[in-house]
Amino acid sequence: MLYLLNGMGFYLIFCKFIEEKLRTMIMKTHTKFLSVIFFAAAFAVVSCKKDPVEEPPVPEFGSIAIEFENMVGDSVLELNSDDNYAINGDTFTVTMFKYYISNIKLASANGTFTEPESYHLIDQSVPGSFTFTIDNIPVGDYTGISFMIGVDSTRNVSGVQTGALDPANGMFWSWSSGYIMAKFEGTSPQSGGSSHNLIYHTGGFSGVNSVLRTVGPSFNGAIANVTKTETPVIHIAADLAEWFVAPANIDFATTYTIHMPGTAAKMIADNYADMFSVEHIHN
């Protein structure tokens, strides 16, 4: 109500103001422009006095939820599992799996919605991190998604951040500033590392060392129908097995530690760029 009153107040003042201005202008303006000014004045006064105060059309907004499910091939990923996973003739266990998703964009016939402050850390050890909701999305049918795997270069050089980007999350290199975009740790009997460890930390945000990859897993013709009341859920699978195959097949005997930007990190990033697939969408 206050808002409405304020709006009316402004509107009435504005009309008064225009009338005053026009009177002075007409008196001062060269005759050659008089007819134009009169026309404009008449239009302004008329429109000011006759337009009723109407509520502007209210855009409608809803939400979308995105749920990530971490997998290894067809199996749901389990940390510290007694059963080993198999890949490339090697076996391995997983003790840590986490990655950043950022700069989410959703496409509809009406255009592209870009999530503000779009930074999410998916951490297999924190079930609460698997699902998040994006609010204030214009209602409509959404047909596609894209996002960055990692944290864009700007936030790597802008000082200390918070929330998902808090350096306390253990995803920031202190000795060579920049986010660790994704982490996989585990063990494999084939690993050449100490205690048969596997430690893959990918990072690097600039130039030739950038591991940032923007991907757009297909909806396969499905639609996320956002209404004021219904929140569709986009269910995305992330397959850890993709880290180790195509384009590069990873041999745990020789590749067991990656902890700096460079060729090895980029090789893994190229591999995991296709680890996401949209499984289904709940409407």
Binding site: N156, V157, S158, G159, V160, P167, F172, S174, W175, S176, S177, G178
Partner: peptide
């Protein structure tokens, strides 16, 4: 020159 911003500098000695 490994640290690119004054605000994240203390993270290096704290975690080293």
């Amino acid at each position: 020159g490994g640290v690119n911003h004054i605000e994240v500098q203390p993270l290096a000695p704290i975690t080293n």
